[in-house]
């Protein structure tokens, strides 16, 4: 494998008003690896994730994906990148409540221009793969939290992204459901070869990673990429 990092953040600084969210944060994500971003709440791990994904723009510093500088891109270019190359799983409230589960999963494909029928077929496959094929026609409000998270994972992976950003994906679940979601999520991500950036404060969730990076006071202590 050519050892070039997929996603590089260098010297990121970001302020929210008076609060320093990122203070010279740097991180490298290699293709196909699962990295856990850990740290106490308010340490800046979610902010770092949003910067890596091009959702937030840092005040200074650089984020490069495949050598392309995200911070220099226009908003629509970054949106297109997120549509095509990235996937997202959040803690909760991420499924569009009025769309059915299969429509939610099909959404990223349709946003990238795939036809409705084709998108729904692929989405159904992904729901089956995450063992929630039976909820395809239901609305998010009608399924359990664990099922909803698995639908969200299916949606994050459906467009075969190179990186999946997961922000406390099991934060709202009990341990049994959390384990199931993580197992299915990481297995599926490894199958597709996607890298995963996993923000969590739970060690058992972080244990699904290949290595961890600890964020404290806006800085990153990164564990060596062991390869």
């Amino acid at each position: 494998m050519t050892e070039q990092p997929l996603l590089v953040a260098e010297g990121l600084h970001l302020h929210f008003g008076e609060t320093k969210a990122l203070d010279d944060a740097s991180l490298h994500i290699w293709p196909g690896e699962v990295v856990a971003l850990m740290g106490p709440s308010g340490s800046g791990k979610s902010t770092l994730l949003h910067c890596l994904a091009g959702i937030l723009q840092p005040d200074s510093g650089r984020v490069a994906y495949h050598g392309r500088d995200l911070t220099a891109m226009s908003d629509s270019e970054r949106s297109a990148l997120r549509r095509g190359e990235f996937g997202f799983v959040f803690q909760f409230g991420q499924l569009v409540p009025e769309l059915t589960c299969v429509e939610n999963v099909a959404l990223p494909l349709r946003l990238s221009g795939t036809g409705r029928r084709e998108a729904h077929r692929t989405a159904t496959d992904w729901l089956e793969r995450l063992e929630v094929g039976d909820v395809a026609g239901k609305r998010p409000g009608q399924v359990s939290g664990g099922q909803g998270q698995r639908v969200a994972v299916a949606r994050a992976l459906v467009s075969r992204p190179r990186v999946v950003f997961a922000d406390e994906p099991t934060g709202a679940l009990d341990s049994l459901n959390g384990e199931l979601v993580m197992k299915l999520f990481i297995t599926a991500a490894r199958d597709t070869g996607a890298a995963v950036v996993l923000v969590t404060h739970e060690a058992r969730v972080a244990a699904y990673s290949d290595r961890e990076a600890v964020v404290r006071d806006g800085r990153v202590r990164e564990q060596e990429h062991a390869r």
Binding site: F86, G87, F88, P97, L111
Partner: peptide
């Protein structure tokens, strides 16, 4: 009321136009 859903939609690259 739906700002979280809206923000998530933006996160995975929904165009403003949409």
């Amino acid at each position: 009321e739906r700002r979280r859903v809206l923000a998530v939609l933006v996160a995975f690259g929904t165009r403003r136009r949409t």
